[in-house]
């Protein structure tokens, strides 16, 4: 036990608020969606469509990706806001367009340990969304790893599929359904199980 006096921990955290409709001149930046230059060695397109409870495109969402590199290691490099074209920082940001689509040019993450399922960690923001949402887009290929994944195993079969990307010719496709039929599983990562 330490004898040093300990600061009383604050009991409250600052609440979130909606990103609103007017972030487009502030949060996007040059190269935000290009974690690696499109077309460079190993580059894939991670993309999909964000839709609402009526199945309509969400045109004013912001999507962020945070991911390991192909070796499974978590990047600790700065430079996401001023990319040098060579350093993989693992972070990207993009806005959806009028069709609700988003995409990143990136590398596919590797598993962080043998037998683990590799995924992209995603954050979604939008007008009408009072707080950010976290989710995971798993790569679909390693079925044994997916079957052994603790999060996927804790989900009913019908919802599990919402977290697994499919593939088109350019890379993983991951649609984000905020509400309703096929609603994406959004995560509580706070480390506390709901009472």
């Amino acid at each position: 036990m330490s004898t040093a006096p300990r600061e009383e921990p604050p009991t409250r955290t600052t609440p979130g608020q909606t990103v609103g409709p007017f972030f487009h001149y502030a949060l996007p930046y040059d190269g935000d969606r290009d974690l690696v230059p499109p077309g460079s060695a190993g580059a894939v397109r991670l993309g999909g469509r964000v839709t609402d409870g009526a199945g309509e495109a969400v045109r004013d969402a912001l999507v962020e990706v945070w991911q390991a590199g192909p070796d499974g290691a978590v990047p600790r490099e700065t430079g996401s806001l001023r990319r040098d074209g060579w350093t993989f920082t693992g972070f990207g940001r993009t806005c959806t367009g009028r069709d609700g689509r988003y995409w990143f040019s990136t590398l596919e993450p590797g598993p962080d340990r043998p037998g683990a399922a590799a995924f992209f960690a995603l954050t979604v923001f939008a007008r009408g969304l009072t707080d950010r949402l976290f989710t995971r887009a798993y790569l679909p290929d390693d079925t044994a790893a997916l079957a052994a994944d603790p999060l996927l195993a804790s989900l009913p079969a019908g919802r599990r599929a919402t977290l697994v990307a499919r593939r088109d010719g350019r890379g993983p496709v991951f649609d984000i359904r905020l509400q309703g039929e096929g609603e994406t599983v959004f995560l509580d990562l706070s480390g506390r199980r709901a009472p």
């Binding site: 409870g53 309509e56 939008a126 009408g128 969304l129 009072t130 949402l133 919802r159 905020l178 509400q179």
Partner: peptide, 8 residues
Amino acid sequence: TALRHPTK
């Protein structure tokens, strides 16, 4: 929020 909040 009507059509944009997760129901689960």
